[in-house]
Design a protein around this nucleic acid. Structure first.
Lengths: 333, 333
DNA sequence: CCCTAGTTTGAAACCGGTTTCAAGTGTGGT
DNA sequence: ACCACACTTGAAACCGGTTTCAAACTAGGG
């Protein structure tokens, strides 16, 4: 049950372990017959190198720490998947830690990753302060995803949420809607405030002002979509369209509208944000702003790998894409 | 930028590194004043132990290898999340590897995990043979999730899919349906064949036989739900209900029915399998058989931890639960 | 044929911890 | 006062690799 070590190979092949190491890593020239002996011994004994020992010796763990928020949110999950995919075949493996949306847990989790001597860190979302990140990850390649810390100490891969919110709202305006309700995300969540800013900006550009009675809070959950529609309906202020914080919220809103006998898009149009997998298959298929979550994740992996190799990489906000399906009706003509 | 080692602490505290180790791990009694000196030095220098070195020394990496299939499938993703959650606060971290549904990649991925000297392995789904698993993971605590390898060499946490399929079909029969179409999953996927067996069993118990014209293949995707419904409709064999391979397939089926002007559940009833997050919020909310994916994942973590501690654990198939919502109408009376 | 430069090679140090072992210290019993 | 025994402690070995260094060997040039 014992593991085979390079010492065992050295003995069998009749060389020193230094030579075995050199053969295995092609790190120096070795006489052909010795090389052959080592290779044969390696295969015969079924050697698999102890990555832990190797890491200790050369200081590289071949591991990338990934901090998720584990909220079961389709968006963040898709980013994680992108990170995993982007690391495939790189030799690096992703080590996950879980922040549970609590800052203290996130700080602990980062510490755990750093303690494991990961070669790089990918932080997905979360609320850890810039200073804390700098302190813990100093000297370590670090990439933030789905978050923008506006200073040049960090590398960030994030979406331009104001332009995304603008895109959605402008489209609704173009389709002739004027009473456009918005279900916001969590009050202080930067994504939510940015999308809301885009919403306002689109109205401003059209020389219009959004009706404050059509603005309602949410928390990115489907349940909050239901609550929001009920709230909206109780305010007795007519609206012909809803811009939901994300697709999940849109699903909830759609269901609540249905329960009130309101058709989508016949009576009210609906637009989401994210473009999660299911959105193309609900009835009616949801018009939404696509966030390339998976791509952002794999982009983060590429960035980390580049940083590890000593390279640089420039990040610029990725743009959302309007995916037009069937949940928005035209009010023109 | 250099890291603080226990050697540094030993020097500052005026003791040997053995003593530092003993204080840090409470592994032996140490004189109070020395202990105090060590603790102070530790805090003053901001020491964080090198987990890699520790792993090498005591042979425990405090890491659990997790092999996923990364298919973006809500079901498998939920299991992964459960595994992550179950490991939280255990001191162990999950190291992910990606099998991409290809057996050769899976074998490589397992090898990579084992090479990193993980203390246990969680295999989620996948098609690696029992022998291969035994060979690679011999001596390592190993748990399979969402898969049943019927021999006593492995620990498996899986759902009883025939009883699940039975549950769904029996419910439809009880509601008065007789022409029940089934959209199967991938032809040779064990989950699909088991659910189909449950479907047949429910018919048999009722003294009925399913109509072969109402059986159609799928691949667990939403797109395959659309294709299946089109196929079904083209066969011109009446049906009043559809049992879909999973919720995603049900979504696709629902959309296709809608496009053909068929109401759910007015014209045809629909039942899914999984109970993914969104299923409660589509219109109509989907009646389905719930698979406790997340729970299975965290259960797997618990099992692994127990096995690592030398304990045992007995696995028995988890049962699905019928979640009755609004997508099935009664045909009785 | 000798000297020098270049190539292979193994011994040993090292990465940063844990653990064994034996020496040193102190305590209590008689 | 003496001895046995328990308790602390540091030196050193160890985990399994990588890397430095210097010795030994090889080949080429004069």
């Amino acid at each position: 049950m014992k593991n085979v070590t390079i010492q065992d190979i050295a003995r069998v092949a009749g060389v020193s372990k230094s030579t075995v190491s050199r053969v295995l890593n092609r790190t120096a020239a070795v006489a052909p017959e010795k090389r052959k002996a080592v290779v044969e011994a390696t295969e015969r004994l079924g050697f698999s190198p102890n990555v832990v020992a190797r890491s200790l010796a050369n200081g590289r763990s071949m591991t990338i720490g990934v901090l998720t928020q584990l909220i079961g949110s389709p968006f963040y999950d898709a980013i994680s998947q992108g990170v995993i995919a982007g690391l495939a075949d790189s030799g690096y493996s992703p080590l996950f830690a879980d922040g549970q949306w609590q800052e203290s847990k996130q700080v602990d989790a980062i510490a755990a990753l750093v303690g494991r001597r990961v070669d790089g860190v990918v932080l997905i979302g979360g609320g850890v302060s810039s200073d804390e990140i700098s302190r813990q990850c100093s000297g370590l390649p670090t990439v933030l995803v789905a978050r923008n810390l506006p200073n040049d100490r960090h590398h960030c891969i994030f979406m331009d949420n104001v332009s995304g919110g603008h895109l959605a709202t402008k489209y609704l305006l173009q389709q002739g809607h004027r009473q456009i309700a918005i279900i916001r995300g969590l009050e202080h969540h930067p994504d939510a405030v940015d999308r809301f800013a885009g919403y306002q900006q689109a109205f401003n550009e059209a020389g219009l002002t959004p009706d404050p009675k059509l603005i309602v809070e949410g928390d990115f959950s489907a349940e909050s979509g239901i609550r929001a529609v009920n709230e909206l309906l109780s305010r007795e202020q007519a609206f012909t369209a809803i811009f939901a914080a994300n697709d999940l919220t849109a699903f909830g809103a759609r269901l609540a509208l249905d329960q009130h006998g309101l058709q989508v898009p016949g009576d009210v149009s609906l637009i989401g944000f994210d473009d999660q997998l299911e959105s193309a298959y609900v009835t009616p298929p949801l018009t939404t702003v696509r966030q390339p979550a998976r791509e952002m994740g794999s982009h983060a992996s590429e960035a980390i790998l580049k940083l590890i190799e000593g390279g640089e990489f420039s990040s610029q906000p990725v743009q959302g894409e309007l995916i037009i399906r069937k949940s928005v009706a035209s009010r023109v003509g």
